[in-house]
Design a protein around this nucleic acid. Structure first.
Length: 349
DNA sequence: AATGCGTGGCA
DNA sequence: TTGCCAAGCAT
């Protein structure tokens, strides 16, 4: 490794110049020459992009901004509308907090987003990253915006050998060396764009990198090995059942899941417990059950084999009955898969 | 501070 | 096919 340190000012100027030429056109960014993007759109996009890819989030961003053009519109929405609109995007606590945040902005801030990092940080679902991102991008305030992209770029620029997550404080400190009052929002987005398009997790494109000359990671000959990572624990496997009760009007039984925990606050199908041991075969009601087969699904911290059981019944019991298509649209993916399995030809014969 | 929390795309 | 992972947050 060369016995030099990356030139902070040089990196700043070269990366901002690169951003001026290569910034991605994204639906939540103001068109060139337009006024600064609405804080509402910045905040909404940042929440949707937490642990989520741009292609996955994009149609949801369009759907939300069309249906709820302002934060006050969103604040006035019903819980079930918002949770249903988020279905399929994952990490559903984000949707619960999104609505709580919109209502806080509407109710406690007169419908106007607070414009400081500290005030933003008090809002539901707004953590260190999102507060800094909104403060810098929407309000041009100097803020240390550190996401996974920024961590990776810093780990490579400085060839940080400490594995994440232990290295996080050091990576944050390094990112802070670049923060100034000069175009803070553009700096943050330049760094994240670089991470997303050039300094990618796998096969970084160092040949087109505007700051390659300053990168200690590249100088080691193997920049892709940064950031170092500690091995994750293996994902356990669970088994369980989901029950599709269908009545004579083509409606199915659904329930709203508890606020906390997996798929919290979302619409769901009746289920058994999902366990690592032998599955518990206790149907929720007496009926002529048919085995529709199983679906596989992978959550962050466990994988699941879900047996799908179907039965025709009279609408009754502790459930809500919804037309099958309306339910399909509002269910999280694991249950949408189960419903699709239950709806396969002949299963309701 | 370690853990719980989704999904879909890709090598 | 299987693992890895993508703009984190709450507790």
């Amino acid at each position: 490794m060369p016995d030099v340190s990356p030139d902070i000012d040089l990196i700043r100027s070269q990366l901002v110049a690169w951003y001026d030429a290569h910034a991605r056109s994204l639906p939540w960014r103001a068109a060139f020459g337009a006024a600064r993007t609405e804080p509402y759109r910045v905040w909404l996009s940042e929440v949707m992009l937490q642990q989520t890819t741009v292609p996955h989030a994009t149609p949801y961003f369009h759907a939300f901004t069309t249906r709820w053009p302002t934060v006050s519109d969103l604040a006035a929405a019903e819980d079930a509308e918002v949770m249903g609109a988020w279905a399929g995007l994952g990490y559903y606590a984000r949707a619960r907090n999104l609505l709580a945040c919109a209502r806080a902005v509407a109710g406690e801030h007169g419908g106007v987003f607070p414009d400081t990092e500290a005030a933003l940080l008090t809002l539901p679902g707004v953590g260190a990253y999102t507060a800094a991102a909104v403060a810098s991008i929407a309000f041009d305030r100097a803020a240390n915006v550190v996401d996974g992209n920024v961590e990776r770029v810093m780990a490579r620029l400085f060839a940080v050998e400490t594995p994440v997550p232990a290295a996080r404080p050091e990576l944050r400190r390094l990112a802070g060396l670049f923060v100034t009052d000069e175009r803070p929002g553009d700096w943050a987005q330049a760094l994240m764009d670089l991470g997303a398009t050039v300094c990618r997790p796998k096969s970084p494109s160092c040949g087109t990198c505007p700051v390659a000359s300053e990168c200690l990671g590249l100088a080691t000959g193997d920049p892709a090995r940064f950031p170092m990572k500690t091995k994750k624990a293996d994902r356990p496997h669970r088994r369980g059942a989901a029950y599709v009760l269908i009545d004579d009007q083509g409606r199915i039984a659904v329930e709203t899941r508890p606020e906390k925990g997996l798929l919290g606050g979302m619409l769901g199908l009746p289920t058994s417990d999902w366990t690592t041991g032998e599955p518990v075969a206790a149907a929720p009601v007496e009926a002529d059950w048919r085995d529709a087969g199983a679906v596989e699904h992978v959550f962050t911290h466990f994988s699941l084999t879900l047996a799908v059981m179907t039965a025709r019944v009279d609408a009754d019991g502790p459930y809500r009955w919804m037309p099958i298509e309306a339910a399909r649209a509002a269910l999280p993916t694991v249950f949408a898969k189960a419903l699709d399995r239950a709806s396969a030809p002949d299963l309701f014969g």
